[in-house]
Amino acid sequence: MTLSVGCTARPGKSRENRTGAWRTFKPNFKHDKCTKCGICALICPESAVHENQDGFYDADYNYCKGCGLCAEECPAEDIEMTREEK
């Protein structure tokens, strides 16, 4: 990357900047007691949780920062935060 004059940026930089690298704890969507309520997707500040083909939910780990809000809010307690070793 070369620097832009005046630190300007064009649209799409949030997509390029893979903030998943910031993560310390990783949410594991166990799909065990999950009722497919979708609160995890609604609560995710990064919109990094998406419904999959089976109607369950998964995180996009390229952008999930590991904040843990989904695990905290999951009524079925079906999301487990585990320390991620890099």
Binding site: V5, G6, C7, T8, A9, R10, P11, K13
Partner: peptide
């Protein structure tokens, strides 16, 4: 040198 233009958007002074 460059300017704000809705048809070719840029942001100034990003982090």
């Amino acid at each position: 040198y460059q300017r704000l233009d809705a048809r070719d958007p840029i942001s100034f002074g990003m982090y």
